[in-house]
């Protein structure tokens, strides 16, 4: 009979930090249960077979030294050369920012170079006049363009409206013709139905009269016989 505790017990046996009490309990059970102790012995034997592994010597290899030296050489180059100049891009960025913010202008004439901060006042007035002329010209051109666009839109809208109305009229006339033809056809069919009904009524009355005549003849014949 198999012991129900075997799996759980032996799994716990191989635990890393087994409490002393649990280890004692497992030991007690192993002493009393032959099946569990045999199973444990077999598992330990399998494990000890693996532990007979003989360490093999590593074949010769460069231990990644070439890669290490190559990458660190390039790393040293970076840290050696660039570390002295790495402030340069930052400084250049700040210089550009200063030039933009202070609106620095450099002009050269016969007297040499001159550096000025902010825009010159004379230039500014001339620039304002040119700018207002340019704005007025732009506005005129824009208004002319808007007028042309509106005209074109209006003419297009009228054409479209006319076309829609023509089409609507035409389709309305066609629809009226169709409705008239339908009513006419319906009227003729009703008349025909009435004629047939009347004929049937007449035929039926004629039959009734004939039956009455036959009945009268029969009655008169019976009177004669008596």
């Amino acid at each position: 009979m198999s012991c129900p505790k075997t799996q759980h017990l032996l799994q716990e046996y191989f635990s890393d930090d087994l409490a002393p009490l649990a280890r004692e309990e497992i030991g007690n059970h192993l002493n009393s249960c032959e099946q569990c102790s045999n199973e444990l012995e077999a598992l330990l034997f399998a494990q000890s077979n693996l532990q007979k592994w003989q360490e093999q010597q590593v074949p010769h290899w460069d231990r990644g030294l070439e890669l290490f030296r190559r990458e660190h050489r390039s790393g040293n180059f970076r840290s050696g050369f660039w570390s002295r100049w790495q402030w340069l891009p930052t400084a250049a960025s700040f210089a550009m920012l200063g030039i933009l913010l202070l609106n620095v202008s450099v002009t050269s004439n016969q007297q040499g170079f001159s550096l000025s901060f902010g825009a010159g006042s004379g230039n500014s007035e001339q620039f304002d006049v040119q700018l207002s002329e340019f704005q007025a010209r732009q506005q005129n051109e824009m208004e002319a363009l808007i007028t042309r666009v509106e005209d074109r839109l209006d003419s297009n809208s009228i054409q479209l409206l006319q076309a829609v109305m023509d089409q609507t009229q035409q389709s309305t006339a066609e629809n009226l013709d169709r409705i008239y033809a339908f009513f006419e056809q319906q009227r003729i069919r009703d008349l025909e139905d009435m004629r047939v009904g009347y004929q049937e009524l007449v035929d039926s009355d004629y039959e009734t009269i004939r039956s009455l005549q036959q009945l009268a003849q029969f009655v008169s014949y019976q009177g004669t016989v008596r």
Binding site: Q11, L43, F45
Partner: peptide, 12 residues
């Protein structure tokens, strides 16, 4: 733990 136990059982 279960995988280790199962593996040892297979080897056994």
């Amino acid at each position: 733990k279960t995988r280790f136990y199962t593996a040892l059982k297979k080897l056994k």
